[in-house]
């Protein structure tokens, strides 16, 4: 038995997760007010890709395609960042929001809405742009605290600092809303998260940060493996844990901020996808991170499909629906097999 054979068993698992994500994608494009068969969807997709006319469905497919792409990209970003942050903090409870990115992004977006900022630049809407900057700003703040004090020395303190900062920023959001209550409805829906009204420009604006973040996440797999046994052991194996947390965490913050700027703060996906992925590919981050991304993409694509079709014409907030469907399933699995069971 060699590394290769151990890794080989992971490749089919990742392929299978990829297939699930692809099926979810096609289903998502097919479902809606005008339902299309998977075959019709595939035909139209082929037409779009090859630049050929393939019937009137193509217009519908084109519209839904953007939305499915958004959901998949945001799901993949949140899930892979979740896996990275759980590894970075050695904590199965960590999620993309522990380093303050989510609450920072929320505060940014709420500020933009309550101040009535205008249309934006570089493809970002003003709200999306403010959310992106808010998310990055909050993470920088957490790391600045970490860099200037004893917090830098261990993962638990950094985690706690992030959580406390999140509470502070959430408190700011609440207070802003109390003062500017006429914006309540708009802000409320943004905070719940979702993809309605978002399109290609938002995807294009966020894509570079998401792609860079994802590549960095995949690249940090071995570092996260080595970090898993604690700072002393990581150091003895040749890694600087403080530097690793700083660099890897910064890329995770970038990715999360981009995702939140597009879709608002969608919880659950980032927390749970890595746990699901671990059951398929084990804990090694090199396989875990791409697998988590696929799980997250599939989960959020399906959730968004359900959000816009099950209660049509009312659209459910996708963040709420993700947890509504996912949480009972996850709890059931947790009760039956525990967190430890992998593969």
């Amino acid at each position: 038995m060699t590394f290769a054979s151990a890794r080989f068993r992971k490749a089919p698992a990742i392929l299978a997760l990829g297939a699930v994500a692809a099926v979810a994608f096609v289903l998502s494009v097919g479902m809606g007010a005008v339902a299309l068969s998977p075959l019709a969807v595939l035909r139209s997709l082929a037409g779009l890709i090859l630049g050929r006319e393939a019937g009137p469905e193509q217009i519908i497919v084109g519209l839904r395609l953007t939305r499915a792409l958004l959901a998949a990209a945001v799901g993949a970003s949140l899930a892979s960042s979740g896996a990275v942050l759980q590894g970075l903090f050695r904590n199965p409870l960590a999620d993309p929001f522990v380093i303050g990115s989510s609450s920072g992004a929320s505060l940014g977006a709420v500020l933009a809405m309550t101040l009535g900022l205008g249309s934006g630049a570089f493809g970002f809407t003003a709200i999306g742009g403010a959310a992106f900057l808010g998310g990055l700003g909050a993470s920088v703040l957490v790391y600045a605290m970490a860099g200037s004090s004893r917090i830098r020395s261990d993962a638990a303190s950094l985690l706690l600092a992030g959580s406390v900062l999140s509470s502070l920023l959430s408190a700011c959001v609440s207070m802003l809303l109390a003062i500017k209550d006429k914006d309540l409805h708009q802000v409320w829906f943004w905070l719940l998260g979702g993809f309605s009204g978002r399109g290609l420009p938002q995807l294009a604006a966020a894509a570079p940060a998401m792609i860079v973040g994802f590549l960095a996440a995949v690249g940090s797999g071995r570092v996260l493996d080595v970090l898993s046994a604690g700072d002393d052991e990581a150091a003895s194996l040749g890694l600087s844990p403080v530097k690793a947390r700083l660099v890897v965490g910064a890329f995770a913050a970038l990715s999360v901020s981009a995702a939140v700027s597009v879709a608002g703060s969608i919880g659950f996906v980032g927390l749970v996808s890595p746990h699901i992925a671990r059951r398929f590919v084990g804990p090694s981050h090199g396989a875990l991170i791409p697998a988590s991304a696929l799980v997250g993409a599939a989960m959020l694509t399906l959730a968004d499909t359900a959000a816009r079709s099950f209660f049509a014409p009312i659209e459910m907030p996708v963040g709420a629906l993700t947890a509504f469907i996912g949480a009972p399933f996850f709890l059931y699995k947790l009760a039956r097999r525990g967190l430890e069971a992998t593969r």
């Binding site: 038995m1 590394f3 904590n91 493996d225 003895s236 671990r278 084990g282 992998t342």
Partner: peptide
């Protein structure tokens, strides 16, 4: 360095 115990956060296999 061989520590007395190692408590990895994740269930790595011996080979890993």
């Amino acid at each position: 360095w061989v520590p007395q115990i190692s408590e990895s956060a994740w269930p790595f296999t011996v080979r890993e």
